[in-house]
Nucleic acid binder design. Structure first.
Lengths: 159, 159
DNA sequence: GGGGACTTCATACTTTAGTACCTATTGTGC
DNA sequence: GCACAATAGGTACTAAAGTATGAAGTCCCC
């Protein structure tokens, strides 16, 4: 049913337009006899159609117009330590023998993110993040994320 | 002349629309004779008008409608080199306006200690440590000890 | 001497974190 | 093909962390 709803949402305007056209054709077919009798009324007839379809066109356009996206850039101060000693990094990192995913989790964890936030950022479930974090703590020989952050910062193994 | 130009700019769409209508009426008046002969062609005639005015409506709407503006705020990170590595410490610390006890708690917290451990080290109850920590987080504008540690290390306000 | 901070502690509660254990899939190397 | 590591995810539980609110004492300053 979700599938059908999706199609409806994507094609609703076209569908509505089609239906309107169909109804209109029917109305015209039925009403043209009256107008053919009152031959002089053709101008009015045409005028009404013109107005109607103009309004319809305006309406369609209003529905379809894509909102323009205006980007506002807000400056945000970020303090970062000037990288002087920049090598211990690799050596200590290898010792820990972390897997790719574990390291990725550590990166975000060391930025102070919660498990839920990490899960969102890495497109993982909360369970998986917890599993990775738990394994990470064992490998790093720490007992909490707080200690993990402290150690990561101390060993300079964070990006 | 500027005055005239101003009026033109403000009313150009309406004027153009009026002109188009006038031309159309003329064309219709002239052409209806032919269509009245080919009576069966009325449907096609109506159809063409419908399509034409729909398109016209869309065009008018696109010209007149103010674009929907959707504002997206993007944070631009500006990396600031903390001036001289080992003095910001004091400056940043003062900004936070921490009390003595809060700062002591922060010290241990930033070493990765749990609330219980901090309580032991400072001879406080767990409640008190939690209270200090909570107030600390407010002053530091963070939401968890993880963020507090990260920020403390980044600002270099730990002993 | 009263108001305002800081400090200490408590209770009650909600939310995260963390652990343990299990299933399942996908590459990689032997 | 199969073992193995890595990845992803689930349930169920316990343990911390964090919030809210209130109470009480100390110290200092106007």
């Amino acid at each position: 049913m979700i599938f059908l709803k999706d199609i409806w949402l994507k094609t609703r305007y076209i569908t509505l337009y089609g239906l309107l056209m169909a109804i209109l054709v029917f109305v015209l077919k039925w009403s043209q006899w009256r107008f053919l009798i009152l031959d002089n009324a053709l101008d009015i007839y045409i005028g009404l159609i013109a107005v109607f379809f103009t309004i319809l066109g305006v309406w369609i356009a209003l529905q379809l117009v894509k909102p323009k996206v205006q980007t506002v850039i807000v400056e945000k101060e970020i303090y970062i330590q000037p990288s002087d000693d920049w090598a211990i990094n690799e050596a200590e990192l290898k010792k820990l023998n972390l897997s790719t995913r574990e390291y990725e989790v550590l990166q975000l964890l060391a930025k102070g993110q919660s498990n839920a936030e990490i899960a969102e950022n890495l497109f993982l479930s909360l369970s998986t993040v917890k599993t990775h974090a738990s394994n990470l703590f064992v490998k790093m020989d720490v007992k909490s994320r707080a200690q993990a952050i402290e150690k990561a910062k101390r060993l300079k193994i964070t990006a």
